[in-house]
Design a protein around this nucleic acid. Structure first.
Length: 208
DNA sequence: ACGAGGATGCTCT
DNA sequence: GAGCATCCTCGTG
């Protein structure tokens, strides 16, 4: 199980978001245990994007980066984790994209559990079915034990990394507007595996 | 099967 | 003080 390299993430964010569908997220827990999930839903956030934390961080006068605001890490090395707290409760996992100096990230929104289901059930007592273990961005971080400790870490090597699946089964990609945002609500940057039971139940932000 | 509302803390105005 | 890349519970049908 070879981790996807930094080159994989050194590409346009929207391309990476689409390509990550079907890819495995792997969490090494100790020497003998692995949690594995298949990515079924993602979202892209770019530098020129009002909904992205990187928006407005380039100082108009100097061209330099503002380090007094959230989101500077999005300009960092591709393949790095960008993890942040939302609604005071849930950690959301992103992987940084684009060359260093250009901001971008892909939000991992939903997984299909592949391995380590028992462990995920332990971490997610509120889940009433296997679907509810990982069918949302805050749920999957809980199931995988991803929190602030992973912010800024390298996602191209254990203990948390991406890997191409052995069985590259084909599927249809569906595209919608993104979820839970109030700006740039019409950009079609949410990607999901069509009709997959493990995608999140969320409603796109332009349909409310 | 829905829908409303509360939880909870950090960031920026 | 408002807003936030969310989730859960408890109502009513």
């Amino acid at each position: 199980m070879e981790p996807l390299s930094s080159d994989y993430f050194t590409r346009p964010t929207v391309d990476v978001a689409r390509d990550l569908l079907g890819v495995l997220l792997v969490r090494q827990v100790g020497a003998d245990t692995r949690l594995v999930g298949r990515i079924v839903e993602t979202e892209a956030y770019t530098q020129d994007d009002p909904a992205c934390h990187a928006c407005g961080l380039v100082d108009a006068a100097t061209g330099g980066l503002r380090h007094d605001r959230r989101g500077v890490e999005l300009f960092g090395a591709p393949g790095t984790a960008y993890v942040y707290l939302i609604y005071g409760m849930h950690w959301l996992l992103n992987v940084v994209t684009e060359p260093e100096g250009v901001a971008g990230a892909v939000l991992i929104r939903a997984l299909e559990p592949v391995r380590g289901v028992r462990r995920m059930e332990t971490r997610r007592p509120a889940a009433r079915s296997d679907v509810q273990l990982t069918n949302g961005p805050g749920k999957l971080t809980q199931a995988f034990g991803v929190d602030e400790a992973f912010h800024g870490t390298d996602l191209t090597a254990p203990p948390l990394f991406f890997a191409a699946p052995d069985d590259a089964s084909s599927f249809n990609v569906a595209t919608t507007a993104r979820v839970g945002i109030s700006k740039a609500v019409d950009r079609p940057w949410r990607f999901l595996i069509a009709d997959h039971p493990y995608v999140s139940p969320a409603v796109p932000s332009n349909r409310r």
